[in-house]
Amino acid sequence: MILLLAEKKEGKFLRLTQELLSEARRINDSLKEEIAVLFVGFQAAQEDVVQLGEWGADKIINPVHPLLEKYDSENYVQLFHEIASMNSISIILLGSTVYGKELAGMISAKLKGGYAGDCVRLFYEKGKISALRPVYSGKVHAVVSAVSGPFTASFRANMCKVEGPIPGKRAEVVPFDFHPINNGKIKILEVVKSQDQLADLSEARIIISGGRGLKGPENFRLLEELAKVTGGAVGASRMVVDSGWIEHQHQVGQTGKTVSPDLYIACGISGAIQHLAGMSSAKCIVAINNDPEAPIFKIATYGIVGDLFVILPLLIKEMRQVFSGKAVV
């Protein structure tokens, strides 16, 4: 069995859930096992069942329990443990979200199996389940293979091709009788939602990022405006985060976030190696910088050498035209 965890946000599956299913389908061409989705907490609705089925799930394991309605690492690990004790699992896939990454290590340790974090590809090589993962913040790739036990991998968002739905494919929903451990060692007291709507870089398809070239914290408003117009998020270089211009949540690169959006617009970022490591897997990179020698131009798909205070207002205006009348996704 290939087992993967479905995650929802605001009532909708993360795109990452569909990506995990696509990756599972591809490696399953070699493995030929059952693909099971773990849908936790609530009864799966008919539309969930249809969606997960068409994305490639053969089975939906659906434990319903009050203690599973909210994320609870101890009970979630226990749940994987119970499922693994009743099924022969070869691969467990989780998204590289905060919860997914936290769980992946714990699950693999609990199941005494292999682990690979933040993978970008799964494949079958010389009879072994293998994973490709960036190391040294993406400066190099490593290939690791499973030796024994279930292989647990967390998978980075926006890195793999999404396979089209299989029309009419339905997944079988399997209820699961879960036995919670309920020792309450961790209690969530409060969730403080960030007022900053532009800080969530995790699944953003467009990131507008700023560096020292912005000259001051007040000029981030230009990036914020462009991000709002394009439905994107705002990123930043380490330099400006350390200078206190913007919160750490926004930092891209080593000691910040690794991102792979469809479009990354680097404004006034010279491109230190630590920054490049965190964003060079973006599909399209645009660099705007007044220094033609800036290293960022060496990896940018398109470069504009010029004054960002002239370029950005023009870009906001043009983008507004492109996005007006187009639903922002």
């Binding site: 290590g105 340790a109 960036p134 190391v135």
Partner: peptide, 9 residues
């Protein structure tokens, strides 16, 4: 290695 494994394990 950017594993994020050791604490949880």
């Amino acid at each position: 290695d950017d594993m994020a494994y050791m604490g949880g394990a």
